[in-house]
Amino acid sequence: MTRLIVFGILAAFFFSSTFVLNRAMSLEGGHWAWTASLRYGYMLLLLCTWLLLKGRRGVLIAAWDAFRRNWLFWTTAGSVGCGAFYALISFSASFAPGWVVATTWQITILATPVVLLLFGRRVPARGVLFTAMIFLGIVLVTLEQATAAPLGDILRGVVPVVAAAFAYPLGNQMVWEARHGTSSLLPAITDPVVDDSFGRVLLMVLGSIPFWVVLLIVAAPPPPSPGQLVNTALVAVFSGVIATSLFLHARHCASTTYELAAIDATQSTEVIFSLLGEIVFLHGALPGSSGTAGLVLVVGGLMLYVRAQTAGPLKEMVHSRAEKG
């Protein structure tokens, strides 16, 4: 159990690099459109290279065939779950510190049940109080920022993150629904490559490419600096490869609902790592009393929320084992 928690915290550490490096690129004058699109360009290159080095060329071919057969679906899902999600996150870094973006991003745990409801899925009612704690924490963090920046900048730094928090689970749920053929609005995807985790990620990244091309044409940003090219590559490696691999490995090794909940809860430490990273590397200021209270509420609420969502299943599992014994 301890080893899995360590993996989860390490994953959160590398995930937090996204918020710190995005903020660094923004402060250096890098355009947010390049920050977003370059990451996925690097991810496509890294995924293809990894699969080739592992002798899994068949996954590349199968993913491309699957993409061609349902190009409209994959373009839509990729544009929402990768494109809109990360473009909004990158945009917000131009107006808000990384730790504020990381804190606001935690609202995705509240957005996920809403997305599930949109697809007609049942959502447990447990944990409502803790979702309120998380929301209050985000409000406190936002209010503290409001005293240090114009209202327009605060809204541009927070609202896009809230929208991104809905776009990310929406894109992923679209893939889940299509994979299981349970939605009348989406095609039933039966390609075997969709059952492969690398195959699914590759299809989502491929689907996002048209979004990035259109974004760069519309935004018409100046050429990226050498520093932005390096930093976006680091984000792709740290967050897209290392963090994702650690997190998925920890979840794969979990054997109980309790362990899964504990691993998911470790992701709340992204907020703390983002704050420390901004202070150490970007000379950011420590949050005041309102911001600190908000951080405590968000992290604590997230951990309690995950526990509440799994308390029922865990109790049922223990009770079932007791009856069998």
Score class of each variant (00 low, 15 high):
Val6Arg: 07
Ala12Val: 04
Val20Lys: 03
Leu27Trp: 00
Glu28Trp: 11
Gly29Lys: 10
Thr35Phe: 02
Tyr40Cys: 02
Trp50Cys: 05
Phe67Pro: 01
Asn70Tyr: 13
Trp74Tyr: 15
Gly78Leu: 06
Ser79Cys: 11
Ala84Gln: 12
Ala84Gly: 11
Pro97Met: 08
Val100Met: 12
Ala111Ser: 09
Pro113Ile: 12
Val114Leu: 15
Val123Asn: 02
Pro124Trp: 03
Gly127Phe: 06
Val128Asn: 09
Phe130Cys: 06
Thr131Ala: 15
Ala132Met: 14
Gln145Asn: 13
Thr147Ile: 02
Ala148Gly: 08
Leu155Val: 11
Arg156Ala: 04
Pro169Asp: 10
Glu177Cys: 06
Leu186Met: 04
Thr190His: 12
Val194Glu: 06
Leu203Ser: 02
Met204Glu: 11
Met204Gln: 13
Pro210Ala: 11
Pro210Glu: 11
Trp212Asn: 07
Trp212Gln: 05
Trp212Ser: 03
Val213His: 10
Val214Ile: 15
Val214Cys: 13
Leu215Gly: 00
Ile217Glu: 08
Ala219Gly: 09
Val230Gln: 09
Val235Arg: 04
Thr244Lys: 09
Phe247Tyr: 12
Leu248Arg: 12
Ala261Ser: 15
Ala262Phe: 05
Ser268Ile: 03
Ser274Phe: 01
Gly277Gln: 03
Leu282Gln: 03
His283Gly: 03
Leu286Asp: 03
Leu286Gln: 09
Ser289Asp: 07
Ser290Tyr: 12
Thr292Pro: 01
Leu297Gly: 01
Gln309Met: 14
Gly312Ile: 14
Gly312Tyr: 13
His319Tyr: 08
Ser320Met: 10
Ser320Phe: 09
Gly325Leu: 02
